[in-house]
């Protein structure tokens, strides 16, 4: 079942995945190129000064990319399922419904995770190439909620798409928007580095919990509860 569902998702979303992957790669590579260029034209100690004391986030370009990726992926994954009630086919497959939904969503999350992992590796390599490890620590804490936002956007969009009642769909979408928005919180213009230094685990927990929303929507869909 796992393989078959993965096969189906792959056939459905491969081009989406390629496009999202390309955007992510371009932006992440852009972060490297920008910084490499800056390091050539500005003295390293001045750049570091700005990083440490002025919250110069050389990686800020990536900020909304994961959330956007999650949103697009969910739309591309679930639009074909929901147009013409195609999800009915999927839920008629001889397997437990929740298992089908969980697997479908897990496949999406893993594919996104793979893309985000590449992003992060590029950011990590870029940071460690130019800066001491303290900057790497700070970068990790700063970008973590941005990547969480990618998963949150994905899970919430999926749940909002599958939901059949417009009232609930709006409630889920607004709540999801508030959650994603909160993951970009920070005191300064750039959201402030390390804003989630003490709360990243709570953010991770809340975002993980949104994985479960699809089961509620899926149940409503399956049973026609308007």
């Amino acid at each position: 079942m796992l393989f078959a569902l993965w096969y189906k998702e792959w056939l459905k979303t491969k081009w989406t995945l390629v496009a999202i992957g390309a955007i992510n790669l371009l932006v992440a590579a852009g972060v490297y190129l920008d910084l490499a260029n800056t390091m050539k034209t500005v003295e390293a100690n001045v750049v570091l000064m700005n990083v440490v004391f002025k919250e110069y986030l050389y990686y800020v370009d990536i900020k909304y990319i994961p959330a956007l990726s999650g949103l697009i992926y969910a739309v591309m994954q679930f639009t074909p399922e929901l147009s013409q009630s195609r999800l009915k086919l999927t839920l008629h497959l001889p397997a437990p419904e929740q298992k089908i939904l969980a697997t479908t969503q897990l496949i999406g999350a893993l594919e996104l995770a793979a893309i985000f992992a590449i992003d992060y590796l590029i950011l990590a390599a870029t940071t460690l190439a130019f800066f001491p490890v303290e900057v790497f620590d700070s970068m990790t804490v700063t970008v973590a909620p941005w990547f969480f936002a990618g998963f949150a956007a994905y899970f919430v969009t999926a749940a909002a798409f599958v939901e059949i009642s417009w009232t609930r769909r709006v409630v889920i979408a607004l709540t999801g928007y508030a959650l994603v928005d909160a993951l970009f919180l920070g005191v300064s213009f750039n959201a402030g580095n390390d804003a989630f230094a003490h709360a990243w685990w709570a953010a991770a927990l809340v975002v993980s919990a949104t994985f479960l929303l699809l089961f509620v929507s899926g149940f409503h869909y399956k049973r026609g509860i308007v």
């Binding site: 189906k8 086919l89 008629h92 497959l93 001889p94």
Partner: peptide, 20 residues
Amino acid sequence: PDTKSRVGFLIEGHIQYQFM
């Protein structure tokens, strides 16, 4: 799931996974 496997279901409009 066992019962579902014994039921063939044609959705109105002959809907299938159009991306396959």
